[in-house]
Structures are given as C-alpha cells and as structure tokens.
Design a protein around this nucleic acid. Sequence first.
DNA 1: CTGAAAGCGCTAACAA
DNA 2: TTGTTAGCGCTTTCAG
Lengths: 360, 360
Amino acid sequence: MSRSTKSAASSKIDIRGVAARARVSIATVSRTINHVPTVDPALAKRVWKAVKELNYFPNTQARALVSGRSRLFGLIVSEITNPFFPELIQQFEAIAVQHGYEILLGSTSYDAAKTEQCVRRMLERKVDGVAVMTFGIEELLLNRFEEGDIPTVFIDLGPSTPHSRTISVDYQQGITEAIQHLAALGHRDIAFLSGPLRMHSAQARSDAFARAMQQAGLVTRPEWMLEGTHTLDGGRDAMQRMLKTRRWPTAIVCSNDVTAIGVQHALFDARLRVPEDFSLVGFDDIHLAEYTIPPLTTVRMASEDLAHAAIGTLLEMLGTAEAAAGTPVPTHLIVRQTTGSPRTNATAARATGRKSPVKH
Amino acid sequence: MSRSTKSAASSKIDIRGVAARARVSIATVSRTINHVPTVDPALAKRVWKAVKELNYFPNTQARALVSGRSRLFGLIVSEITNPFFPELIQQFEAIAVQHGYEILLGSTSYDAAKTEQCVRRMLERKVDGVAVMTFGIEELLLNRFEEGDIPTVFIDLGPSTPHSRTISVDYQQGITEAIQHLAALGHRDIAFLSGPLRMHSAQARSDAFARAMQQAGLVTRPEWMLEGTHTLDGGRDAMQRMLKTRRWPTAIVCSNDVTAIGVQHALFDARLRVPEDFSLVGFDDIHLAEYTIPPLTTVRMASEDLAHAAIGTLLEMLGTAEAAAGTPVPTHLIVRQTTGSPRTNATAARATGRKSPVKH
DNA sequence: CTGAAAGCGCTAACAA
DNA sequence: TTGTTAGCGCTTTCAG
C-alpha cells in the first residue's frame, strides 16, 4: 500500500492540511478559496499551490452546516417518463451548475405520499430554493415551503406569496396560431384533448383553446373537449373513446406531445390516417415530435426558456441576481406533417394507402 | 407576523429544542430518532411527541458531517434525453428512497469536461456510492472514485477493483431470440446498427449480434455492420447512408430503441414501409416502443432490473445488505409489428399503400 | 491583512 | 439506560 504524501487519499485532506502546507492559518485558506478580496496575493498563491498539490476540495457538508446554505436547488417534476421533463431537467441542471448549484430531483408521480416525502427530503437537505414544475396546483407544496421560508417558483399558479413566484407561460399565442393554421386549411370541427383539468396548466391550455376558437369564429362542442392524462396511454384511450361516438371532428389539438403520440397510435390501430383522416397538433415540441410518423405539428414551449426563467427567478429571490423581468415564456406553432386539409366524409369512408408514389 | 410557538418556523427547531420539550438530553433524542433499541419506551414516547409537535426533522448536513455518511448515491448517466435513462432514473430513485438514500444526478453528455465536473461534484458531496450507467468505459471515472475509496458499480465493464463492481447484462439471450425470430420469418440479409463502438456495451451488443448470426448459420457482411450514436439522429443518418448503397438488407437490428425510431423516420422519408420493405428490431423496450407506428419489435432489458442490481450491489459493498448474487440482468425479445416476411425485390420496387383494409 | 477562537447541529465515545 | 462532552470541517466574528 504505497501512498505517496502528495497524491493519494485526497479525501482525507482537510483545510488544516492545506493551511499547514501553505504555512498560513485555516482562516486564510478559507478566505482564499472563497475569493475574499482582502487576501495578500502572495499568500493566496501559496494556498492555491497547496490546494493543487494536495488535490484538496472543501467538504460541502461542513460548509453548508456553518453557512446555512446548501447550494442545492430542488426540482420537483410530476413524472420523469414524459420526455418533456428530462429535456427540462437537463436544461435546469446545466444552468444551475453554471451558477454553482446542484440539483436535487424529486418526482411526485401524481401521488400524495410521494409528494409529501419529496418535499420532506428537500426540506431536510435544506435546499436553497425549489422549482415546482409539475404543471399542477400543489397547495400542499406551497405551504410547506412557505413555512420553511424557502424560495419557490411555480409554473403558472395564481398568487405570489412572500417566498413564492410564478412563471407565466403565454399559452394563448401558440394555441391561437395552431387554430388559425387549422382554420386556414379549412377545418371547422376541431376537438381539444386536454390534460387532467385539476392541473392548472392543463386548464390554462384548455381555456386558451376555447378563446382561440372563438376568435376564429368557430364553435367548440362540449363533447369535443376531452380530458386526458398527459400520457401516451391517456391520449390513446381518449381517442378510442372519441372514435366510438357518432360525429367526429376533422382535427384534434392535444394538450401535450405524448398525448398526441397516443392519439396517433389509436388512429393507426383503427386504420385511420394522419393527416388525411385527422389533422393533429401537439404541444411542447419535445425532440421526439420531429420523429413521429408522420412528424408532428406542434406548439413549441422551449424547456430552455422555462429553465432559465425558473433559475433566474430563484437567484433573484436569493438576492444573487438582478430582477430577471417577468416576461412570460413564449410559445409558437411548428408546422410539420400531421396537419392537412380536412377529410370529406367520402374520404373517411374509403381511405386507404399512402398518397405519395414510391420513390426508390 | 404571528408565529405561534408550536407550528411555524419549523426550520429553526433543532435537537436541543426537542430535548428541552421532552425533558431529556440531546443524546436521548438522537438515539430515539435513530432507533437505537436501548431507549426507555416512556422517554422515546415523549421524544416522538415533541418531534411531532415541533415538526422537527434532523439537519442532514450536520448528520453527514459527523457520521461521514451522506446517504447520497451518485447516478451518472450519459444522456438524459434518451428515454431509456429517465425510466432507469425513476426506478433507481424509487429503490434508493426505499433504502433511505437520495440521488445526486449527473449527466456526462459524452463530454470530458462535463464528466470531470460531474465526478467532482459527487466527490464534494461525499456520495456513499456511485452507479455509472453510461454504458461506456470510463476509466477516468473509475480511477477518481477508486482514489476516494467510493464504492462504484459499472455496467458490463471488465475488471473489478476493490471498490468497484460490475453488473453484467445477458445481451446474448435477447439478441439471439431476435435473430432466430427474423430467420424464422425468412430473413437472411440482416444488418446491425450499433451504438458508438468505443462504448463497451455497444460493442457487447454488436458482438452478441455477430455470434447470434453465426449460430443461425447466417453471414454478417461488414458493410451491414453500421456504427450509430444511440440517438434518433444517429439512427436516421445511418439508415440514410445505407439507403444510398447498392445492396440492401431485408432486416435491421438496432442497438437501442431510439436508433430504431430514427431508422423508421428515415424509411418513412424515403417512402419505404415497415415491415413490408424492412423488418426492424430495437433494443431496450422503452415505454414508447409500444407507441411507434407501427409498434416496435424490440429486445427488452428492464430498467427496473438494472436499478435493482445496481443498488443491491452498492448496498452490499457498504455492508448494508446481503450479497445480492451476481446473476446477469436478463433480456428477451418482445415481438410487435415491425417484423415480418422479407420483401422480394419486386415488392421493394413497387411497394405502396397499407395492406389492411379500412375498418371503420 | 491575518490568526485565534467560537460555534453550525449532530453523533459517538465515555461516564454515571 | 441516560447524560456529558468532544469533535466532524468549515465560516466568521473579533482582536491584533
């Protein structure tokens, strides 16, 4: 077991070791690595040299214990298996790390017990702030964090309390674009497949749809306002239910992309084609949307914008950053290949095969 | 600002507060909440009562500082946007939480600098163990953790050092099933679209393919062994390259599901049909595989099994759990709708339209 | 500008 | 069985 004094056992080196080697006090080491400006450059140089040689890095636990700040941000999402969230998480993590923060991830899976436990874990780890990206009202969460004086950001939730802020999303813009696009193609019978309506953001998207329809002079029929679950299965099931009804719409707007993918699947199963039999519009613009067959027309809400807004707001609440201006996160339509002219009833009845001729 | 003595400011309650209210020493409180069996039940009851009333929970930082254990497991993945990883992460987190551990997530994005930083963060936070699920050899990682005496599990990496173990995956089983399935359908010209070959697991899958082909008495042509990137884009690009060559295989086996989805997309773009023109097999069986159009035939490797094996091994190394026996993670074929009889050259030339008649 | 010393909240000897 | 006490590694007064 050869352990040269220099290299190995990096984990056992502490601030005292560095101080000894640099022939200064531990206080000076502390100041140096924290970039306190009043340190004599000569000493600082000795300290950094020792740090390098010993491969020292500070113990985060001790640091957090004494300073009261953990440099940890909690990120609470509902369900990590919806591809939108990983994209969001990745952005969030990248931006957090840039600012010297770590992410503690929690997923609620729409389950009260899991949510409670998740909040508890965040509180125990003394996160400096929390971003709740569940796209749903979680009064519970708000109260618990409020009690602990922990800065919290939510996505489009109503009131801002002393320790919580809201990031607003301009759902209307993108959804209006979608309806206008559909209307321009000749669609009049448009259905909306929402997420769980108890979730505020699902409700907001649903409302935006209704408003856009009205602006376009189209009527929304109640039986064409379906409630889904924001999942693949939910989209498939809802579409299957709709296919059992008498009168079909010619276009379907979904509250998120995975729902739309579920719809595509149900349609495929029923031997119905997109966009010939049904036009389809998603929401989110996950990376995969470009890869569905055919590629999905969808409303883009950039996960990067969301992550930026969330962390900016958190940093601002901590006094670390300037006010990041509360401009809402924008959305806009991306036209791909799931939208086209509405079918005539005749087409619907005998549709078969692809239109385009074989190429190769 | 009314703050009743009982409820609010839960974050300011410490072990001393609890001790005072329960009229015991802080040591007794510590023992109670750590379930040390030698505490007098009467006192324990008083302590728990105080804990409830004050809504107390221990400061994790302090606990970690003194005990040297953070109850944190690092989980390093390559790229969170490949849907396989979120599914794995979710499983991993669930199981970790069951055992009282938290997850610190890091993604390397195949980038050396990001990887380095990621390891550093884990070391700084003093993780009790690390699972490296990058599906690639990362000597760098191994050494750094080894130096810090941190238990580490890798996926199918060669040698086990004192502090590292390997979880092996039985790639052969599932891939052999896939080849046999294809051969039974009449395929002889089968291509393999691998991941980045510098990644050990991609190489292992590739080798398993070659062996399975040999066992089935089929020849593998070098130009049909393509290297992809385990991404949507990589699958699409590789397929597009292949379509430019003179001789086409009749079936394609992919090293993971997103690659297969990319291939489907390239085929769709080229007006070629699955499975009429090409049979397609994926690997992983992500949830989405059931929702591609048509649904993807794939080799299942359960993320749950992987997560279980990883955490079991980590716990075992920490002495917390019994030896979890090193049985390899199994894989097996799931037949859906992307595999069928091989095309004849004639079919390839004039393929058009769906076979099945319209239903509704 | 630097060093000595006092804790941060908790666990783990050691005494009682 | 319970309480007292000494730190864990670090930041941060407070003197010097």
